Amino acid sequence: MRLTHLKLAGFKSFVDPTTLHIHGQRVGVVGPNGCGKSNVMESVRWVLGESSAKEMRGDSMDAVIFNGSGNRKPISRASVELIFDNNLGGATGEWSQYAEISVKRIIERDKGSTYYINNTVVRRRDVADLFLGTGLGGRAYAIIGQNTINRIVEAKPEELRIFLEEAAGISKYKERRRETELRLRDTRENLTRVEDILRELDKQIVRLQSQAVVAEQYH
């Protein structure tokens, strides 16, 4: 998949609907201080599922909504949308059939976020699953901010391993394995509960059989 458009509305300094056309495989965001470079980078992380207000430089996630300025009133809604060209079939699962894929997140003040893929309401996890192993995600290596290089250089071994696994494309398989292990654990716990119930029923059967023998003696 290749990112072709980034659409913002009400997100931080981008109060008016704005569309950025993305050309090429590598894109750099440059400009003077205060022009909104960080807001562009954060908008991509945010729409892909970032859940930490701290990573968005705010006290709460509502802080991404334009909060007013000297001549503009605050608004109550923000949205970011990414549009991908999927003609080469990079997407997997149910979305692989689409030539174009849209990923959108909308937040309303005091109401939380809603995620969409091709205008269908989905879970945050569905968005994350779509990009597993691609290097693109809330904190993946494909989005290189001002502090990303330092973060990689200073990363602890376990943190560096996450970057390498994502780059190698095996993170999605590890996630599937983790989910399978959780399901197996739940199944084992359910079996244990069933065995406890069966033992209790066996005790009741023995008790009822004894009562039946006594009852027959009085007939």
Rank of each mutant, 00 (worst) to 15 (best):
L6Y: 04
K7D: 04
L8K: 08
A9I: 02
G10P: 02
S13N: 13
F14N: 14
D16C: 03
P17I: 05
T18H: 07
T18R: 08
T19R: 13
L20W: 05
H21M: 10
Q25E: 15
R26E: 04
N33F: 07
C35Y: 11
C35P: 09
G36V: 08
S38Q: 04
V40T: 09
V40F: 06
M41H: 02
E42K: 05
S43N: 09
V44D: 07
V44Q: 07
R45K: 03
W46T: 00
L48W: 00
R57N: 14
S60L: 02
S60Y: 04
M61T: 04
S69M: 03
R72F: 01
K73S: 15
S76G: 15
A78W: 01
S79M: 12
S79G: 09
V80L: 04
E81V: 07
L82C: 06
I83G: 10
I83P: 09
N86Y: 09
L88F: 10
T92C: 14
S96R: 15
Q97K: 14
A99E: 09
K104L: 08
I106Q: 13
I107C: 03
D110M: 05
D110K: 12
K111V: 04
K111N: 13
K111H: 13
G112H: 02
G112K: 01
S113H: 07
S113T: 11
Y115F: 11
I117L: 13
N119W: 12
V121M: 12
R125D: 11
A128W: 00
F131A: 13
F131I: 10
F131M: 15
L132N: 04
L132K: 12
G133Q: 09
G133R: 12
G138D: 06
R139Y: 12
Y141F: 14
I144S: 02
N147R: 05
T148C: 06
T148D: 02
I149N: 05
N150F: 03
R151W: 03
A155C: 06
K156Y: 07
P157F: 13
A167K: 06
S171H: 06
T180N: 06
E181R: 13
L182T: 07
L182N: 05
L184E: 11
L184C: 11
L184D: 07
R188C: 08
E189W: 06
N190T: 11
L191D: 01
V194C: 04
D196G: 15
D202M: 10
Q204G: 13
Q204D: 15
I205F: 10
I205P: 02
V206F: 04
R207T: 10
A212K: 12
V213K: 07
E216Y: 09
E216A: 14
E216D: 15
Q217N: 14
